[in-house]
């Protein structure tokens, strides 16, 4: 049995008036994400709450680990991992879009990410050195020159083995064939419906 609501009276990032105005204006609450003032307030509130936002019974174990002070070093390690993978995957995505593999892109890109992750688990000494250098450089402001980061595509090329390229080619071919087959099936269904209708 639930009790009556306990309303709060402070200034709010998601108050009904602000949302109603936004809906009237653009038809989407998510456009608030373009509003610097709203974003600042949302960020400030989350800072005040130390990023503790989890909801749902299933999230309790995750949150317990996330807020455990004893795991602060683990979280720092994950943050490093996140930054490194972000740098690599942004460039990998850009690079693979130049391959022009059309409908096979998503599956091939997903496979390529897994291959990169596998190489990061056992990096060569040269790759380890580059990783340290690019993460150190990443601490510089966004608008600073990033000469180490500009080598990302070259590092990805060095990382990929002959077997990796074969795997990617197979995944791309299979994905394209699956989609082509699904399209033919759909087209034949449409054709048969037209025949019945006629």
């Amino acid at each position: 049995m639930l009790l009556g609501p306990n309303f709060q009276t402070e200034a709010l990032a998601l108050d009904e008036r602000k949302l109603a105005e936004q809906w009237e204006k653009t038809g989407s609450f998510m456009d608030l994400c373009r509003d610097e003032t709203w974003l600042d307030e949302a960020a400030r509130i989350e800072d005040e709450c130390d990023g503790r936002v989890e909801a749902g019974l299933a999230m309790r174990a995750y949150a317990k680990a996330k807020y455990d002070p004893a795991l602060a070093d683990v979280r720092k390690g994950l943050r490093r991992k996140m930054r490194l993978q972000s740098i690599l995957f942004v460039e990998l995505n850009r690079w693979m879009k130049e391959w022009d593999i059309g409908v096979a892109f998503e599956e091939t890109y997903t496979e390529a990410r897994q291959l990169v992750r596998a190489h990061l688990k056992q990096p060569s000494p040269a790759l380890s050195d580059w990783i340290e250098a690019v993460l150190e450089e990443d601490k510089q402001p966004d608008d600073a020159d990033k000469p180490v980061r500009s080598q990302t595509r070259a590092q990805l090329t060095l990382m990929m083995t002959d077997d990796d390229w074969k795997t990617l080619a197979q995944v791309a071919a299979a994905a394209a064939a699956d989609i082509a087959s699904a399209s033919v099936h759909k087209a034949s269904q449409v054709e048969s419906n037209i025949t019945v209708a006629a």
Binding site: D47, D50, G51, V53, E54, A55, G56, A58, M59, Y62, A63, A65, K66, P69, A72, R75, K76, L78, R79, M82
Partner: peptide
């Protein structure tokens, strides 16, 4: 369920 990545916290 709603959750945010473990690294976006001020303690880090």
């Amino acid at each position: 369920a709603l959750t945010v990545a473990p690294w976006n916290r001020k303690d880090l």
